[in-house]
Design a protein around this nucleic acid. Structure first.
Lengths: 314, 314
DNA sequence: AAGACCGTTGAGCTAGATTTAACGACGGGG
DNA sequence: CCCCGTCGTTAAATCTAGCTCAACGGTCTT
């Protein structure tokens, strides 16, 4: 028997023929992919891939193994699905939530797709706030949540939404007139801070304490909610990197949005407590991925073109 | 996808319907079996086994899942075997060794069975000594070894040989006339020690430093080889617990063997470096298991009757 | 009533999985 | 021609979660 990771790594690499993309899809590092494939090859006693730093190709026995394994994996997932159906695992109820109303359409698309596939399962959709998002997962009042990555301590699926970042500044701010900015400017202005309840990883992503070049970022005042934070920006108390969608969803005459051309995109996707990763939940994640398309973690472009947030009508 | 351990645990339990035997076969603890099955059930969303402390039964969905999974696992192993064949993984050469000539017949049986299944693979059989057994695996001059458990730091297959223990004492020793003894007597006489090169786990098993009740065992002189150790016994320098086979293979007028009625049996099986667990090696372990029968770790009786060492003619 | 057997549970540890970072190979562009 | 960016590999460092251990409660036997 092979380990799950060995099978998944092998089949993914056989499909992608690229270590970096394989790693991104499996949420591991390229080093790990290399190790796993190598171990598999040592075990089998022959090469499965011919690879240079320039190309990756299946060997004949590699192709054969991939062809043999693919239907078996499909069968295994099918068997599991049947067991979950029989055990009422994909029926019953699922509580899904979104965080920030502009993401609701994406979630509703996922819910619709899931509903087609599993008509027996009731899905509850609700909204959570920045302040209670974590608690709602922890106390079980929500099973799965569409939220920004990273969401520390939770399991997460692939990214479903991706958008560029813009810097929110007061209308009269010296930077307000710029065409585009570098994230390096964060070192020169106080940055409004997210509330305490949000996770360190999240804050680090949105309001890093250092610029990429290592310069410290001055901390501005803390806001309790997103609109409160925007108000602080409008008052000139600080600047705030936000997602592009804010332009459309939070147009304010007293706030200007300037593109940050060298920032990593913001990614959003489904998160849940890994302690209760049920088959039902997996089915929902699959439905969501199929319904809205997915991105693999930064650095490797998606195979299909990005779905612009604005076009996400249900 | 399921983890390998989940699949194996589930299928083994479905077959054994007993947590203890399942754990023994998989070389894990019953607690782990319980955890894994529970996790699987949580994931599927329903019970797979109905169990009391008295009985374990498959539920309908459990039976269904087992029936679905079994052929898939078989297919996976078949695919792997084919890949190994194509990649020359089960051809080439395999170096197998025995430790103590009386175990040679068992190894030769295994070699014969393996030869039938894999005529393309040349098998070299050789003998190693207590003193160089570990080194021969480490330096790659031997791939797999039939030796006593435990063999620290090496991977091992199921036990293939099992025998009771007897205490070797000098012919004139006060204990020489006894019918049977308890291992507790070890506390009352110096015990001849195995050479330094053997592993701590092995020495602990053969010449423990405490009796089961916790009394310290006095250490006698160290011998460099088995016959040297027996000579020390004959000289009255100490006693030595050995396997029953010694009666037949090391009959000495100056040494008496007295059964230890409450000692765990000595187990022997194949050991190898887990860093190069190749498909070829696995095939050999399977062949050996099929050829000589296997025991699962102490405590749970084997399904088939033990093959007495004396009957192991090739 | 006591004891043997069995599955469960939670705390705790350690081995193994995974990451990190440095490296060498390979092409393309200036 | 050389430098730079991309890519896969590797060894060492890190840390997680897989696993064991031990205590427990239930069940059947004598």
């Amino acid at each position: 028997m092979l380990e799950r990771l060995e099978i998944e790594t092998f089949l993914t690499l056989a499909e992608e023929l690229h270590f970096g993309r394989t790693a991104a899809r499996l949420q591991i590092t390229t080093g790990r992919v290399s190790q796993v494939i190598k171990a598999l090859e040592r075990r089998v006693g022959g090469l499965l891939f011919e690879r240079t730093s320039r190309s990756v190709r299946l060997t004949p026995s590699g192709r054969r193994l991939a062809d043999d394994l693919t239907p078996l994996v499909a069968g295994m997932e099918e068997a599991l699905r049947r067991a979950a159906d029989a055990g009422k695992g994909v029926t019953g109820e699922l509580r899904a939530a979104f965080l920030g109303e502009w993401t609701a359409p994406a979630l509703l698309r996922a819910v619709a797709r899931f509903g087609e596939r599993h008509p027996d399962c009731r899905v509850d959709v609700r909204e959570v706030q920045l302040s209670n998002s974590r608690a709602s997962l922890l106390d079980g009042s929500v099973d799965v949540l569409l939220a920004s990555f990273p969401f520390d301590g939770m399991a997460c699926g692939p990214a479903l939404l991706r958008e560029g970042r813009v810097l929110a500044v007061a209308a009269g701010h010296p930077l307000a007139g710029e065409e585009r900015l570098s994230v390096e400017v964060l070192a020169d202005h106080p940055v409004v801070q997210y509330p305490q309840v949000t996770s360190v990883g999240f804050k680090q992503d949105r309001t890093p304490d250092r610029t990429p070049s290592g310069r410290p970022v001055p901390k501005g005042p803390v806001g309790g909610s997103f609109s409160e934070m925007l108000t602080l920006v409008a008052m000139g108390r600080g600047v705030l990197p936000v997602g592009e969608h804010s332009r459309q969803y939070y147009p304010r005459p007293d706030v200007a949005y300037v593109p940050l051309h060298d920032a990593q995109p913001i990614e959003r996707g489904l998160v849940w407590m890994k302690e209760n990763t049920t088959e039902r939940l997996r089915a929902f994640v699959r439905a969501a991925t199929d319904a809205v398309g997915s991105f693999h973690p930064q650095a490797y472009p998606p195979d299909r073109p990005a779905v612009p947030p604005g076009r996400l009508d249900v």
